[in-house]
Amino acid sequence: MVDATPDMSHTEQSTFILRYLTCDECGKYLIQERFLSFIDDSKKTGADISEMILKFLSDSHIPFEDCRGQGYDNGSNMSEISQLKSLTAKTKVDVAAAIKYVSSFECILMAAFWFKLLNSIDQRNQVIQAQSSTVDIEVKNIEDLETELQSLKKKWHLIYDEAKVVAVAMNIDPVFRVTRKGKRKSFFDDSDSDDDKVSGEDSLIQTDEHRFKKEVFFKVIDTVCERLNKRYQAIFQINKLFGFLWSYLDMTDEVIVNDSKNFSTEYSKDISSDKLTEEILYLENIHKANLDDNSLSPLLLLNKITKLKLQDLFPNICIALRIFLTLPVTVASAERSFSKLKLIKNHLRSTMGQERLSSLSLLSIESDLARKIDFDDLIECFAARKARKGVFL
Protein backbone atom coordinates (compact mmCIF):
# COMPACT_ATOMS: atom_id res chain seq x y z
CA MET A 1 0.00 0.00 0.00
CA VAL A 2 1.33 3.44 -0.94
CA ASP A 3 -0.01 6.82 0.04
CA ALA A 4 1.45 10.31 0.29
CA THR A 5 1.09 13.46 2.39
CA PRO A 6 3.17 16.63 2.97
CA ASP A 7 5.12 16.84 6.23
CA MET A 8 5.91 19.85 8.44
CA SER A 9 8.59 21.11 6.03
CA HIS A 10 6.16 20.76 3.07
CA THR A 11 8.08 17.77 1.74
CA GLU A 12 5.93 15.12 0.06
CA GLN A 13 6.31 11.90 2.05
CA SER A 14 5.24 8.59 0.50
CA THR A 15 4.55 5.80 2.98
CA PHE A 16 4.97 2.11 2.13
CA ILE A 17 2.90 -0.52 3.94
CA LEU A 18 3.31 -4.25 3.26
CA ARG A 19 0.40 -6.66 3.85
CA TYR A 20 1.25 -10.33 4.13
CA LEU A 21 0.46 -13.58 5.96
CA THR A 22 2.52 -15.11 8.76
CA CYS A 23 2.24 -18.54 10.33
CA ASP A 24 2.65 -18.73 14.12
CA GLU A 25 4.06 -21.57 16.20
CA CYS A 26 0.69 -23.35 16.22
CA GLY A 27 0.46 -23.28 12.42
CA LYS A 28 -2.22 -20.55 12.41
CA TYR A 29 -2.14 -17.92 9.68
CA LEU A 30 -2.30 -14.28 10.73
CA ILE A 31 -2.76 -11.17 8.59
CA GLN A 32 -0.02 -8.59 9.08
CA GLU A 33 0.36 -5.02 7.85
CA ARG A 34 3.82 -3.55 8.48
CA PHE A 35 5.28 -0.11 7.87
CA LEU A 36 8.42 -0.14 5.74
CA SER A 37 9.61 3.41 5.19
CA PHE A 38 8.88 7.02 4.25
CA ILE A 39 10.22 8.10 0.87
CA ASP A 40 10.78 11.73 -0.11
CA ASP A 41 9.16 12.00 -3.52
CA SER A 42 7.49 15.07 -4.96
CA LYS A 43 6.68 13.64 -8.39
CA LYS A 44 3.01 13.49 -9.27
CA THR A 45 2.65 11.67 -12.59
CA GLY A 46 1.60 8.04 -12.68
CA ALA A 47 4.77 6.98 -14.52
CA ASP A 48 7.05 8.66 -11.96
CA ILE A 49 5.16 7.17 -9.02
CA SER A 50 5.29 3.70 -10.59
CA GLU A 51 9.03 4.07 -11.12
CA MET A 52 9.47 5.16 -7.51
CA ILE A 53 7.49 2.17 -6.19
CA LEU A 54 9.41 -0.33 -8.34
CA LYS A 55 12.75 1.17 -7.28
CA PHE A 56 11.83 0.98 -3.59
CA LEU A 57 10.72 -2.65 -3.88
CA SER A 58 13.95 -3.52 -5.68
CA ASP A 59 16.10 -1.74 -3.05
CA SER A 60 14.17 -3.53 -0.29
CA HIS A 61 14.71 -6.92 -1.99
CA ILE A 62 10.95 -7.48 -2.38
CA PRO A 63 10.25 -9.27 -5.69
CA PHE A 64 7.57 -7.39 -7.57
CA GLU A 65 6.53 -10.67 -9.21
CA ASP A 66 5.39 -11.95 -5.80
CA CYS A 67 3.10 -8.96 -5.17
CA ARG A 68 -0.57 -9.68 -5.86
CA GLY A 69 -2.52 -6.62 -4.73
CA GLN A 70 -2.19 -2.90 -4.26
CA GLY A 71 -3.94 -0.34 -2.11
CA TYR A 72 -4.34 3.30 -3.01
CA ASP A 73 -6.26 6.38 -2.04
CA ASN A 74 -7.68 9.22 -4.08
CA GLY A 75 -5.37 12.24 -4.10
CA SER A 76 -5.72 15.82 -5.17
CA ASN A 77 -3.36 18.77 -5.46
CA MET A 78 -4.01 21.17 -2.64
CA SER A 79 -3.72 24.83 -3.51
CA GLU A 80 -2.99 27.53 -0.97
CA ILE A 81 -5.97 29.57 0.07
CA SER A 82 -5.26 33.16 1.03
CA GLN A 83 -6.87 34.25 4.28
CA LEU A 84 -9.49 36.96 4.02
CA LYS A 85 -8.35 40.05 5.90
CA SER A 86 -11.75 41.72 5.75
CA LEU A 87 -15.29 40.74 4.92
CA THR A 88 -16.80 42.14 1.75
CA ALA A 89 -20.44 43.16 1.56
CA LYS A 90 -21.35 39.92 -0.21
CA THR A 91 -19.48 37.87 2.41
CA LYS A 92 -21.37 39.60 5.21
CA VAL A 93 -24.64 38.69 3.52
CA ASP A 94 -23.48 35.06 3.20
CA VAL A 95 -22.48 34.96 6.87
CA ALA A 96 -25.83 36.37 7.93
CA ALA A 97 -27.62 33.77 5.79
CA ALA A 98 -25.53 31.00 7.33
CA ILE A 99 -26.35 32.19 10.86
CA LYS A 100 -30.02 32.31 9.95
CA TYR A 101 -29.91 28.77 8.56
CA VAL A 102 -28.13 27.37 11.63
CA SER A 103 -30.95 28.79 13.76
CA SER A 104 -33.65 27.16 11.62
CA PHE A 105 -35.61 23.95 12.05
CA GLU A 106 -34.33 22.65 8.70
CA CYS A 107 -30.75 22.72 10.05
CA ILE A 108 -31.73 20.75 13.15
CA LEU A 109 -33.60 18.23 11.03
CA MET A 110 -30.64 17.84 8.68
CA ALA A 111 -28.28 17.41 11.64
CA ALA A 112 -30.49 14.68 13.14
CA PHE A 113 -30.72 12.94 9.78
CA TRP A 114 -27.00 13.14 8.99
CA PHE A 115 -26.12 11.93 12.48
CA LYS A 116 -28.07 8.73 11.87
CA LEU A 117 -26.57 8.28 8.41
CA LEU A 118 -22.95 9.04 9.30
CA ASN A 119 -23.13 6.96 12.46
CA SER A 120 -24.11 3.92 10.38
CA ILE A 121 -21.25 4.59 7.97
CA ASP A 122 -18.75 5.06 10.80
CA GLN A 123 -19.69 1.76 12.45
CA ARG A 124 -19.05 -0.14 9.22
CA ASN A 125 -15.93 1.88 8.56
CA GLN A 126 -14.34 0.86 11.86
CA VAL A 127 -14.87 -2.82 11.01
CA ILE A 128 -13.46 -2.45 7.50
CA GLN A 129 -10.37 -0.56 8.70
CA ALA A 130 -9.32 -3.35 11.07
CA GLN A 131 -5.99 -4.91 10.13
CA SER A 132 -7.50 -8.42 9.94
CA SER A 133 -10.34 -7.31 7.67
CA THR A 134 -10.61 -8.99 4.26
CA VAL A 135 -12.42 -8.17 1.03
CA ASP A 136 -15.36 -10.48 1.77
CA ILE A 137 -15.89 -8.75 5.13
CA GLU A 138 -15.83 -5.39 3.36
CA VAL A 139 -18.42 -6.52 0.80
CA LYS A 140 -20.76 -7.84 3.52
CA ASN A 141 -20.49 -4.61 5.50
CA ILE A 142 -21.15 -2.47 2.43
CA GLU A 143 -24.23 -4.55 1.55
CA ASP A 144 -25.50 -4.36 5.14
CA LEU A 145 -24.84 -0.62 5.18
CA GLU A 146 -26.88 -0.12 2.02
CA THR A 147 -29.75 -2.13 3.52
CA GLU A 148 -29.59 -0.09 6.72
CA LEU A 149 -29.58 3.20 4.80
CA GLN A 150 -32.62 2.12 2.82
CA SER A 151 -34.38 1.24 6.08
CA LEU A 152 -33.84 4.85 7.22
CA LYS A 153 -36.55 5.87 4.77
CA LYS A 154 -39.10 4.10 7.00
CA LYS A 155 -37.83 6.01 10.05
CA TRP A 156 -38.61 9.46 8.72
CA HIS A 157 -41.27 10.20 11.34
CA LEU A 158 -38.95 9.13 14.18
CA ILE A 159 -36.19 11.46 12.93
CA TYR A 160 -38.71 14.24 12.37
CA ASP A 161 -40.15 13.94 15.89
CA GLU A 162 -36.64 13.83 17.38
CA ALA A 163 -35.71 17.03 15.55
CA LYS A 164 -38.87 18.73 16.85
CA VAL A 165 -37.95 17.85 20.45
CA VAL A 166 -34.46 19.30 19.96
CA ALA A 167 -35.86 22.44 18.33
CA VAL A 168 -38.27 23.08 21.21
CA ALA A 169 -35.43 22.62 23.70
CA MET A 170 -33.41 25.24 21.76
CA ASN A 171 -36.37 27.66 21.65
CA ILE A 172 -36.65 27.29 17.89
CA ASP A 173 -40.05 27.05 16.26
CA PRO A 174 -40.29 23.49 14.84
CA VAL A 175 -41.74 24.52 11.49
CA PHE A 176 -40.23 24.80 8.04
CA ARG A 177 -39.20 28.16 6.72
CA VAL A 178 -41.69 29.91 4.48
CA THR A 179 -40.63 29.74 0.84
CA ARG A 180 -42.44 31.03 -2.16
CA LYS A 181 -43.66 28.49 -4.65
CA GLY A 182 -42.99 29.24 -8.29
CA LYS A 183 -46.10 29.91 -10.32
CA ARG A 184 -46.47 28.30 -13.73
CA LYS A 185 -48.14 30.21 -16.47
CA SER A 186 -51.46 28.58 -17.31
CA PHE A 187 -53.02 28.24 -20.77
CA PHE A 188 -56.65 28.03 -21.80
CA ASP A 189 -56.51 24.30 -22.58
CA ASP A 190 -54.82 23.24 -19.29
CA SER A 191 -56.79 20.85 -17.10
CA ASP A 192 -57.42 21.86 -13.53
CA SER A 193 -55.29 19.89 -11.08
CA ASP A 194 -55.42 19.86 -7.32
CA ASP A 195 -52.48 22.28 -7.14
CA ASP A 196 -54.18 24.70 -9.55
CA LYS A 197 -57.36 24.70 -7.50
CA VAL A 198 -55.51 25.99 -4.43
CA SER A 199 -55.86 29.73 -4.28
CA GLY A 200 -54.91 32.57 -2.00
CA GLU A 201 -52.02 32.45 0.42
CA ASP A 202 -51.66 28.64 0.19
CA SER A 203 -50.66 28.94 -3.45
CA LEU A 204 -47.72 31.21 -2.57
CA ILE A 205 -46.39 29.40 0.49
CA GLN A 206 -44.81 25.99 0.53
CA THR A 207 -44.01 24.67 4.01
CA ASP A 208 -44.96 21.09 3.40
CA GLU A 209 -43.14 18.34 5.29
CA HIS A 210 -43.62 16.11 2.27
CA ARG A 211 -41.46 18.41 0.13
CA PHE A 212 -38.46 18.09 2.47
CA LYS A 213 -38.98 14.35 2.81
CA LYS A 214 -39.11 13.79 -0.94
CA GLU A 215 -36.61 16.34 -2.26
CA VAL A 216 -33.98 16.14 0.50
CA PHE A 217 -34.34 13.11 2.78
CA PHE A 218 -34.99 10.44 0.15
CA LYS A 219 -32.69 12.05 -2.38
CA VAL A 220 -29.70 12.09 -0.02
CA ILE A 221 -30.15 8.41 0.90
CA ASP A 222 -30.47 7.36 -2.74
CA THR A 223 -27.38 9.38 -3.69
CA VAL A 224 -25.27 7.86 -0.90
CA CYS A 225 -26.33 4.32 -1.88
CA GLU A 226 -25.59 5.03 -5.52
CA ARG A 227 -22.12 6.37 -4.69
CA LEU A 228 -21.41 3.35 -2.49
CA ASN A 229 -22.21 0.96 -5.33
CA LYS A 230 -20.12 2.96 -7.77
CA ARG A 231 -17.15 3.35 -5.42
CA TYR A 232 -17.00 -0.31 -4.39
CA GLN A 233 -17.78 -1.85 -7.77
CA ALA A 234 -14.21 -3.15 -8.12
CA ILE A 235 -14.40 -4.73 -4.65
CA PHE A 236 -17.60 -6.54 -5.59
CA GLN A 237 -15.92 -7.93 -8.71
CA ILE A 238 -12.89 -9.14 -6.74
CA ASN A 239 -15.11 -10.81 -4.15
CA LYS A 240 -17.08 -12.49 -6.94
CA LEU A 241 -13.86 -13.73 -8.56
CA PHE A 242 -12.62 -15.35 -5.32
CA GLY A 243 -16.02 -16.20 -3.80
CA PHE A 244 -16.21 -19.81 -4.98
CA LEU A 245 -13.19 -20.68 -2.80
CA TRP A 246 -15.30 -20.60 0.38
CA SER A 247 -18.91 -20.49 -0.88
CA TYR A 248 -18.81 -23.78 -2.79
CA LEU A 249 -21.44 -25.38 -0.53
CA ASP A 250 -24.07 -23.02 -1.96
CA MET A 251 -23.03 -23.56 -5.60
CA THR A 252 -23.67 -26.19 -8.21
CA ASP A 253 -20.78 -28.16 -9.70
CA GLU A 254 -21.25 -26.38 -13.01
CA VAL A 255 -20.88 -22.95 -11.42
CA ILE A 256 -17.83 -24.09 -9.44
CA VAL A 257 -16.11 -25.38 -12.59
CA ASN A 258 -16.87 -22.15 -14.46
CA ASP A 259 -15.70 -19.89 -11.62
CA SER A 260 -12.51 -21.88 -11.08
CA LYS A 261 -11.64 -21.58 -14.77
CA ASN A 262 -12.20 -17.81 -14.68
CA PHE A 263 -10.02 -17.54 -11.60
CA SER A 264 -7.27 -19.68 -13.10
CA THR A 265 -7.25 -17.49 -16.18
CA GLU A 266 -6.72 -14.41 -14.02
CA TYR A 267 -3.98 -16.03 -11.91
CA SER A 268 -2.49 -18.44 -14.43
CA LYS A 269 1.03 -17.95 -13.03
CA ASP A 270 -0.01 -19.16 -9.57
CA ILE A 271 -2.81 -21.67 -10.13
CA SER A 272 -3.37 -24.77 -12.25
CA SER A 273 -6.90 -24.66 -13.69
CA ASP A 274 -7.61 -28.40 -13.80
CA LYS A 275 -6.12 -29.09 -10.38
CA LEU A 276 -7.97 -26.21 -8.74
CA THR A 277 -11.30 -27.48 -10.05
CA GLU A 278 -10.57 -30.99 -8.78
CA GLU A 279 -9.53 -29.65 -5.37
CA ILE A 280 -12.67 -27.54 -4.95
CA LEU A 281 -14.98 -30.44 -5.85
CA TYR A 282 -13.02 -32.74 -3.55
CA LEU A 283 -13.18 -30.23 -0.70
CA GLU A 284 -16.91 -29.86 -1.22
CA ASN A 285 -17.39 -33.61 -0.74
CA ILE A 286 -15.38 -33.85 2.49
CA HIS A 287 -16.41 -30.49 3.96
CA LYS A 288 -19.21 -31.63 6.28
CA ALA A 289 -17.27 -34.60 7.62
CA ASN A 290 -14.00 -32.78 8.29
CA LEU A 291 -14.60 -29.04 8.51
CA ASP A 292 -18.07 -27.87 9.50
CA ASP A 293 -21.70 -27.96 8.45
CA ASN A 294 -21.65 -24.30 7.46
CA SER A 295 -19.52 -22.24 5.11
CA LEU A 296 -16.32 -20.84 6.59
CA SER A 297 -14.67 -17.48 6.10
CA PRO A 298 -11.50 -17.46 3.93
CA LEU A 299 -9.10 -17.06 6.86
CA LEU A 300 -10.88 -19.67 8.97
CA LEU A 301 -10.98 -22.11 6.05
CA LEU A 302 -7.24 -21.71 5.44
CA ASN A 303 -6.48 -22.26 9.12
CA LYS A 304 -8.76 -25.32 9.22
CA ILE A 305 -6.97 -26.89 6.26
CA THR A 306 -3.60 -26.12 7.86
CA LYS A 307 -4.67 -27.48 11.25
CA LEU A 308 -5.81 -30.77 9.70
CA LYS A 309 -2.54 -31.02 7.71
CA LEU A 310 -4.39 -31.02 4.39
CA GLN A 311 -2.16 -28.53 2.58
CA ASP A 312 -0.72 -31.25 0.36
CA LEU A 313 -4.22 -32.26 -0.74
CA PHE A 314 -5.32 -28.70 -1.53
CA PRO A 315 -2.18 -26.73 -2.51
CA ASN A 316 -3.91 -24.58 -5.14
CA ILE A 317 -6.78 -23.69 -2.79
CA CYS A 318 -4.28 -22.65 -0.10
CA ILE A 319 -2.38 -20.47 -2.59
CA ALA A 320 -5.60 -18.85 -3.81
CA LEU A 321 -6.78 -18.15 -0.26
CA ARG A 322 -3.44 -16.67 0.68
CA ILE A 323 -3.58 -14.37 -2.35
CA PHE A 324 -7.06 -13.25 -1.37
CA LEU A 325 -6.12 -12.59 2.26
CA THR A 326 -3.17 -10.41 1.27
CA LEU A 327 -5.31 -8.09 -0.88
CA PRO A 328 -5.54 -4.74 0.96
CA VAL A 329 -9.02 -3.66 1.99
CA THR A 330 -8.31 -0.04 2.99
CA VAL A 331 -5.30 2.24 3.31
CA ALA A 332 -6.05 2.90 6.99
CA SER A 333 -2.56 1.69 8.00
CA ALA A 334 -1.04 4.30 5.70
CA GLU A 335 -3.20 7.01 7.24
CA ARG A 336 -2.12 5.90 10.72
CA SER A 337 1.51 6.21 9.69
CA PHE A 338 0.83 9.85 8.75
CA SER A 339 -0.32 10.49 12.31
CA LYS A 340 3.04 9.25 13.55
CA LEU A 341 4.77 11.36 10.90
CA LYS A 342 3.23 14.54 12.30
CA LEU A 343 4.25 13.58 15.85
CA ILE A 344 7.85 12.78 14.91
CA LYS A 345 8.56 15.53 12.40
CA ASN A 346 6.95 18.51 14.10
CA HIS A 347 7.77 22.21 13.97
CA LEU A 348 10.70 21.65 16.35
CA ARG A 349 12.23 19.00 14.08
CA SER A 350 11.40 20.40 10.66
CA THR A 351 14.98 19.94 9.40
CA MET A 352 15.17 16.23 10.26
CA GLY A 353 16.86 14.10 7.61
CA GLN A 354 15.00 11.48 5.61
CA GLU A 355 16.92 8.48 6.96
CA ARG A 356 16.45 9.56 10.57
CA LEU A 357 12.75 10.22 9.94
CA SER A 358 12.18 6.76 8.48
CA SER A 359 14.15 5.06 11.25
CA LEU A 360 12.31 6.84 14.09
CA SER A 361 8.98 6.22 12.37
CA LEU A 362 9.78 2.53 12.01
CA LEU A 363 10.61 2.25 15.73
CA SER A 364 7.42 4.09 16.71
CA ILE A 365 4.95 2.44 14.32
CA GLU A 366 6.34 -1.08 14.74
CA SER A 367 6.97 -0.71 18.48
CA ASP A 368 5.68 -4.24 19.17
CA LEU A 369 8.59 -5.64 17.15
CA ALA A 370 11.09 -3.08 18.45
CA ARG A 371 10.45 -4.18 22.06
CA LYS A 372 11.48 -7.72 21.16
CA ILE A 373 14.96 -6.68 19.99
CA ASP A 374 17.87 -8.10 22.02
CA PHE A 375 19.80 -4.97 23.03
CA ASP A 376 22.93 -6.94 23.90
CA ASP A 377 23.28 -8.12 20.32
CA LEU A 378 22.38 -4.64 19.10
CA ILE A 379 25.09 -3.00 21.24
CA GLU A 380 27.72 -5.50 20.09
CA CYS A 381 26.80 -4.91 16.46
CA PHE A 382 26.95 -1.14 16.92
CA ALA A 383 30.28 -1.32 18.73
CA ALA A 384 31.76 -3.52 16.03
CA ARG A 385 30.79 -1.04 13.31
CA LYS A 386 31.94 2.06 15.20
CA ALA A 387 35.15 0.67 16.72
CA ARG A 388 38.19 2.63 15.53
CA LYS A 389 40.86 0.62 17.33
CA GLY A 390 42.79 -1.79 15.20
CA VAL A 391 43.88 -5.23 16.29
CA PHE A 392 47.65 -5.72 16.02
CA LEU A 393 49.32 -9.11 16.24
Rank of each mutant, 00 (worst) to 15 (best):
K155Q: 11
D161Y: 03
S193M: 04
K213S: 08
C225F: 03
L204M: 09
R180I: 01
I221F: 09
T223G: 10
V168T: 09
Q206G: 11
T223M: 12
K197W: 01
D202V: 10
C225G: 05
D189C: 04
F188N: 02
K197A: 14
E162P: 00
N229I: 06
K197P: 05
F187E: 04
V166E: 09
Y160I: 02
R184D: 05
Y160N: 04
R177M: 01
D173T: 09
I205Q: 13
Q206L: 14
R184E: 13
S191V: 08
V220M: 13
F217K: 06
V175G: 06
R184V: 11
P174F: 02
K164F: 01
T207Y: 05
S203M: 13
K154L: 05
V220H: 09
F176W: 10
R180L: 00
V216I: 15
K197H: 06
G182Q: 03
E162S: 13
K183Q: 14
D195L: 10
F188S: 07
F212D: 04
S186I: 08
K213T: 02
W156M: 01
S193V: 03
N229F: 01
F218Y: 14
V166K: 12
V165N: 11
V224G: 15
V198W: 07
Q150H: 03
K185C: 12
E215N: 14
D173R: 03
R211K: 15
V216N: 10
E201V: 15
D189H: 01
K219R: 15
P174C: 05
K181V: 02
H157Q: 11
R177L: 08
R177F: 01
D190W: 00
S193F: 08
R177K: 10
K153W: 02
K214Q: 15
E148Y: 05
H210R: 07
F212H: 10
S186W: 00
D196C: 15
E162G: 12
D194E: 12
L145F: 03
I172N: 13
K155G: 13
D202M: 15
V216K: 12
L152I: 04
D196P: 08
S203R: 13
Q206C: 14
D189Q: 09
V165D: 12
H210D: 07
F187C: 00
K155S: 11
T223F: 12
E201C: 15
D173G: 01
L149K: 04
V224S: 09
F176C: 07
K185A: 06
T147Y: 09
V198L: 14
V220D: 15
D190G: 05
T179M: 11
V166N: 09
